[in-house]
Design a protein around this nucleic acid. Sequence first.
RNA 1: GGGCGCGUAGCUCAGUGGGAGAGCACCCGCCUUACAAGCGGGGGGUCGUAGGUUCGAAACCUACCGCGCCCA
Length: 879
Amino acid sequence: MTDATETRTPDSRPTGGLSAQYQPGEVEQRRYERWVSEGYFTADPKSDKPPFTIVIPPPNVTGSLHVGHALDHTIQDTLVRLKRMQGFEVLWLPGMDHAGIATQNVVERQLAAQQLSRHDLGREKFVERVWEWKAESGGKILGQMRRLGDSVDWSRERFTMDEGLSRAVQTIFKRLYDDELIYRANRIINWCPRCLTALSDIEVEHTDDEGELVSIRYGEGENSIVVATTRAETMLGDTAVAVHPDDERYQHLIGTEVELPLTGRRIPIVADEHVDPAFGTGAVKVTPAHDPNDFEIGQRHGLPSPAIMNERAVITVPGPFEGLDRYEARPAIVAALREQGRIVAEKRPYLHSVGHCSRCKTTVEPRLSLQWFVNTKPLAQAAGDAVRDGRVKIEPAELSKRYFAWVDNMHDWCISRQLWWGHRIPVWYGPEGQIVCVGPDEQPPTGEGWHQDEDVLDTWFSSGLWPFSTLGWPEQTADLEKFYPTSVLVTGYDILFFWVARMMMFGLYAMDGKQPFDVVNLHGMVRDQFGKKMSKSFGNVVDPLDWIERYGADATRFTLARGANPGSDVPISEEWCQGSRNFCNKLWNATRFALMNGATVDGDLPPASELSAIDKWILSRLQHTIGEVDQLFAAYEYAKVCDTLYHFAWDDVCDWYVELSKPVLAGTGKAADNSRRVLGHVLDQLLRLLHPVIPFVTEELWIALTGGETVMRSAWPTVDPALIDDAAEEELAALQKVVTEVRRFRSDQGLKPSQRVTAALTGLGNVGIDAHEPLIRSLARLDAPGADFATTATLAVTGGITVDLDTRGAIDVAAERARLTKDRAAAEKEATQCRAKLGNEAFIGKAPEQVVAKIKDRLAAAETDLVRIAAALEALPAA
RNA sequence: GGGCGCGUAGCUCAGUGGGAGAGCACCCGCCUUACAAGCGGGGGGUCGUAGGUUCGAAACCUACCGCGCCCA
């Protein structure tokens, strides 16, 4: 097959050096490097401009750019580029999270490959090793962010473990401790027996897993009681059986004791409101050291809480089960009980909700242990109030319900982690049992017997400080002064609880009630073209870098932004990305055409009085587009911004304005000069409007078109009401209608584009477009009638316009009859609907006047059409 | 179990009281001097189901069916 471009005659007109196709790879790197070297991304705290601040959700130092980041960053970059153009002093601050467990796991895996554990190295050496890892292979994502075009201020890059942020962590810990909002307590926490650390509630993922439900009889005869459990091994730690106080079945047993099988221990039967009498037998075994609810019951009844497993979930109770892993102990204990005839029922498989470590998926083991907690009650109250009283807006607002549900029911937050990589808890213990919390400028106590707490803080503790710690807090820096509170926080709804709620609590607390951000802009998850979650096992994961490579960063960004409806998930597909690539190419070629035809941005726009209706029309359309885009951006409607600009660019500018302007541009003189200026203006403005979403191609084209320094720093377009021209829009709508009707006729008749048809147009004056007759002829490929003109077909266009065509017997009567019949059916349907409404007295009486008038107009138009169509059908030769 | 959300064209989604839309996919025709990554034209939907409110419902209310997410 011959390459289509080879057969085309090269055009010799100047193209501003633009090739026939946009090559993103060639442009992107060059443009990005220049933006950085010119300092366009760098924020100035001394600027007089109003501030606009976004802090990046810090990606894990272990991470690489996945498509979710690409969406998140596209939105943020779009916002900051928009705001820069709108005259704000913009700071978009980049950085990374040290990601405690994730990072420690990576380095431990490396050690494991050398048959080493972190304990072989010791704490200090291990932490050194993690820093080395970070220096060598951490932060891959930062380079990838450049590929996407992120206009972040690299001079302010931060890391949650760097010195300033560590100081912030220590400062806030001390303050919370002194305010008694941090405390240490023995509680049931979520424990990962693989990571060997405590986890907070939100680090636990619940799934419905297949397990077993075993009913066990405790005690003998009429004093026996049956309990059911999915974790039979925990019975070794039972210290009671509980029933509801009102449960008739067990009244005689409350206060008595039964023997706990396999152990010989006697345990009490207690009455507790917490027990649900409708579930199972209505009696539950109570294992205070290994279940949060049981722990509560134990507290209420003064029960002992013996631990039966160690930190690796291995049984420690002396006896036959000692040393068995929980999953080995479970069947062993069931077997032993069965031998004693104590198994009353077994359900297997039994589907029930099981918690897993969000990092390694190991089943979480509830464990009684001494940990540090944040008392979230007052903090969460403030975090909820800030949204309730409107200081912080959640976009879309519907998602604030979820936020309230969370902050209004928040449990205390377990913040200690038994890891080595992280901020160490700044608490020292003395030989006499003293506990001293050490602030950032204080010296820890020294001397015999003093030692620091071994644990580190939950990663989310430091990332909760991100909006102000990155600006220099606790120092009163110029950045903090200028750029706090941040303007918009952009993130996925999935970390509303993990991160947003923490930042709200800490920000309000640390900054004396000043919120960390004014707006939380939540977006959804990226999904595939069928709305399916992306997953490796499903094979539908998109690598954004692959798309950037093949279609360009702009196409990738546009595809993501175009799917980003507020708060909802974002489906994408490679085909749609190709469409975005095509759009970029369309812009490229439109600009190329403009340059080849002398479009210019020099001088003022000619006064409206000198402009053609076509020029006035596109300028008017441009004003509407600017207005819509502004409104949509203000509502965080990225998908609709993209859609609006896509259609303005492709339909209005390329398909109509450029085509309509070709005859004018081919000529010389005032009219041609005016159109060159208007075309230059429209493209200049369009490229500015598109720049926030597709920065690379717009930069390249805008510079080629205008000779300016950078579109990044050009002013954001504003609506000029004087350029809105309803009359021109009506004229052009009529013109489009005529052209479209003729094209439809030609297509239905199978007339090739190359085939000229003579035609007479009448009635153009009815709608004031008689002056456009030559244009209509050129677009519809109609020649003027000659002396031998004979009408063979008549088109009735709405508005009283008629096109008589001479197809010289080439007319396909059957096709024409089919077309007219279809039109008649549509007109009849329209007329019938309108008549039904108008015949309804209730409608006439109650509907607003303008609605009634509109229906009357529609009926009149339909009836006129019907008459013309009937005449045309009549005039057709018989089949 | 509690809460939230969603069912509109083949797919993904807009549309929230007054003529059913977009992108992609599909069909037909075309290298037409910016662009075949293009141009022109077209087909396709009883708006999940059933009631109700209303002059008028895809939209508002109720119930049901189906799907998804969050929390326990």
